[in-house]
């Protein structure tokens, strides 16, 4: 039987991790979901939570990686993918 759900792991780094108080969580999505769907679901789950809106509203500064490669919100997701959200980098 074909599974119609996928589970992805989600990571937050730096100021996002601190703001949201979470570094890692698992999210169940419909098969065929893209990263924008994941963002929507995270926002729904955190209903009325300004902090989550703050992170996901910052379109210019929000960076996204899927399986450790930078990507856009329209990237399709597969079972077991690792999606990371983080602010612009400040190393060196």
């Amino acid at each position: 039987m074909k599974n119609d759900k996928i589970t992805v792991s989600v990571l937050f780094f730096a100021s996002y991790k601190q703001l949201l108080g979470v570094s890692e969580l698992n999210v169940e999505l419909e098969n065929g979901a893209i990263i924008a769907d994941l963002c929507r679901k995270l926002l729904e789950n955190a209903k009325n939570n300004e902090k989550w809106q703050q992170v996901f509203a910052s379109e210019t500064s929000l960076k996204i990686a899927c399986n450790q490669t930078l990507c856009d919100p329209d990237k399709g997701l597969q079972q077991g993918d690792q999606v990371a959200f983080f602010p612009p980098v400040t190393g060196g």
């Binding site: 601190q18 500064s61 990686a65 983080f86 612009p88 980098v89 400040t90």
Partner: peptide
């Protein structure tokens, strides 16, 4: 390229008038 691409983040810890303040560095 390390400055703009590599996934590192800095947080600075200040002490101002005896109070500690943590500030994430902006790109």
């Amino acid at each position: 390229y390390l400055k703009t691409d590599a996934t590192f983040w800095k947080q600075e810890h200040y002490r101002i008038n005896g109070v500690t303040k943590d500030v994430w560095v902006e790109a």
